[in-house]
Simulated scan of single mutants.
Amino acid sequence: MEYKHLGRSGLTVSRLCLGTMNFGWQTTEDDSHAIMDRALAEGVNFFDTANVYGRDAGKGRTEEVLGTWFAQGGQRREKTVLATKVYGNMTDWPNDTFLSARNIVRACEASLRRMQTDWIDLYQFHHVDLRTPWEEIWQACETLVAQGKVLYVGSSNHAAWQIAAANEAASRRHFQGLVSEQSHYNLLTRHVELEVLPAAQHYGVGILPWSPLAGGLLAGVLEKAAEGRRSDERTQRRIEKLRPKLEQYEEFCREIGAAPADVGVAWLLHQRAVTAPIIGPRTMEQFEGGLRALDLTLDEAQLGRLDELFPGYKAAPMEYAW
């Protein structure tokens, strides 16, 4: 396993991050525990979750599954860099959502109880809150850091100017600020290359791509359809819209002898701004598949071919100005 510092921090994380969004509702608790055990055995030390994960089993359920896993001991908690998130509503009560100081502190304490731990390594804002000033957000985070409940802070789904505003406000308070950003980033969705990635590199913010396989579209969806696997109606519409590109992509993968899913994740690992793509397996087989990407090296010609198939962006303003 290769490791990398998370942004400008001294925190060392594996090049793959285990996303736990399916745990506790699509993946049973026992199977979830088995995947996490296997992850640690393979050197994956970085686990990502959120307080709202759990869906059909109820919000908070995924954090509870991590809690019962940590409770088994064996240095599971000590070996894991644990990331969770705050923003989404946990109840219908007005102050149980967004990024008020009240919700940040109380949501953190609730996550700690569910996960049966004393601290969160990386506490992330699941989405931007345009109505709460950064001074209030950082006041709450400073309190949690001083109490030892949170060690580092990150963002998710933030624009470049919001990352800049956050870290400039933190700097005025002599606080570390954001060290990571979770962005929607894959071969099909490359908008963050315009401004988010340049801003992240300028501020020393590590990029953690979510949906690295574009909801399965980059995982050999055409081959699977030919084998009889059916997608939901929305996915089928996306497949038809992108079919020419997906056909070329899967043919390219066959030419180089690599699974499409491995190529999609490996491409992200070759991007300089990326710290660790987040893979979110439902099964052990899917987790094992994600590990294969670590062994796949794409040469310059192959990376160039992927750029031809799925054109990206130059950093702004060079993309659109002289």
Rank of each mutant, 00 (worst) to 15 (best):
N103F: 14
R172E: 11
L194P: 04
I137P: 05
R114H: 09
V150L: 04
T132G: 04
N157G: 03
S111G: 10
Q162H: 12
N186C: 15
D121S: 13
A146T: 07
S211M: 10
D232K: 07
V196S: 08
L222H: 10
C108R: 01
F125P: 02
P212I: 03
S111T: 07
H174C: 08
E223H: 14
V192G: 02
R131G: 11
P209Y: 12
H184V: 01
L218N: 02
R113I: 00
L122A: 11
E109F: 02
E142P: 04
G154P: 08
D129Y: 00
M115D: 01
S231V: 11
E223D: 13
V105E: 13
W138Y: 13
A214M: 07
H127T: 06
A110H: 05
H191E: 15
G215D: 00
Y152W: 14
N157K: 12
A170V: 04
A226L: 09
S183H: 00
Y203K: 07
S155N: 09
Q176S: 12
K224P: 04
P198M: 11
V105W: 00
V128T: 08
H126A: 13
I104R: 02
A164T: 11
A169P: 03
V153Q: 03
K224Y: 01
R113K: 15
H191R: 13
V150G: 00
L112C: 11
C108Y: 01
W210C: 06
I239Q: 05
R237G: 13
V145Q: 09
Q147N: 11
G228H: 07
R234M: 11
E135K: 10
W210A: 06
P133C: 02
N103T: 04
Q182F: 02
R131W: 07
L130P: 01
D129R: 01
S156A: 14
H127A: 14
Q139C: 12
R229Y: 12
Q236R: 14
L178S: 05
Y185G: 00
G206M: 09
T143Q: 14
R238C: 05
E181W: 01
I137T: 12
L222G: 10
P209V: 03
A146G: 10
A169R: 09
F175A: 15
S183C: 05
E168P: 03
K149L: 07
L213M: 15
R113V: 02
